[in-house]
Computed example of a mutant assay.
Amino acid sequence: MTQKSIFITGGGSGIGRAIAQKFAAEGWLVGIADRNAQGLAETKALLPHGGCLTYQFDVTDRSGWDEALADFAKETGGAITVVANNAGLPSGGPLTEVTHEELDQLLDVNLRAVFYGAKASYPYLKRSSPEGCLLNTASAAAIYGMANQSVYGATKAGVKSLTESLDAEWSTVGIRVRSLMPSFIDTPLLQQPPNRSRNTPIRDAVVKAGLEFTPVETVAEEAWKAVHGDKVHRLVGKTARKLARVAKWFPGKLRERARILAEAHERSEGRAAQD
């Protein structure tokens, strides 16, 4: 019996690391990619000896994708069972606060690189048919656009749409395409400010808003279910599931909520200016 395999981007921390731990525990061969060499080493140290290969590259680099997947496939007989298109960046704040450099970077990493990963993965997943699966990390932010999430939400909505399109396109060759749509996950990414004009970490804003965090281990379990299930999208966390219900039955309430968030931001900015 051929060992199953998974290649994971953003594997140096957070969701990617948790997915690597879950699949390694199930006996899969794991390949992890990240820009952060230290993070890759830390993840590898958490996995069974000999069950992990590491690749340091930037997901916006097409040649990096090609080289890493080709090398990993040498260890898997030319086929890769799952590719987890997981690497991404957080962002927030009004569009007027986001610099053009930040805008371009977010579009590049969260959307363009996901397309790169999909195209590069196709031949390896096809060889794993009918078990081949592309797993994209989208977000609950793709369900309905909220104030101060225009760029991030748009990139994740793009990932959601890509997932649906490819699940149809690639069904003809036996490849399944799935997405994870988590709400707030307590990872190191939330320790960063939403953009360069702010200093407060994203995590502090989530706590202040009284929203719940979903453990990365829960996301990893949902990733396992996504790869083995029929649902195209898997909502992860109470906030994500609630948001989906409200979007379906009471979309006007979400629109009202979005405006309240925008007004709250303006008030906080006014107070900050006075201080």
Rank of each mutant, 00 (worst) to 15 (best):
K126R: 14
K126Q: 15
K126I: 00
K126G: 03
K126E: 15
K126D: 10
K126S: 12
K126T: 12
R127E: 15
R127G: 07
S128P: 09
S128N: 09
S129A: 15
P130K: 07
P130Q: 07
P130I: 00
P130F: 02
E131I: 01
E131K: 09
E131A: 11
E131N: 11
G132Q: 06
G132A: 02
G132E: 08
C133L: 00
L134I: 02
L134N: 08
L134F: 02
L134Q: 05
L134R: 04
L134E: 04
L134T: 04
L134Y: 02
L135G: 06
L135H: 01
L135M: 02
N136S: 10
N136V: 03
T137I: 02
T137A: 01
A138F: 02
A138Q: 08
A138T: 05
A138S: 15
A138P: 06
S139M: 04
S139P: 04
A141V: 08
A142K: 03
A142R: 00
A142N: 07
I143N: 06
Y144C: 03
G145E: 08
G145A: 12
G145H: 09
M146E: 13
M146L: 13
A147K: 08
N148E: 14
N148F: 05
N148M: 10
Q149H: 12
V151L: 15
V151R: 04
V151W: 06
Y152R: 13
Y152D: 13
Y152C: 13
G153L: 09
G153H: 11
G153I: 11
A154K: 12
A154P: 14
A154R: 12
A154H: 14
A154L: 12
T155Y: 02
K156F: 13
K156R: 15
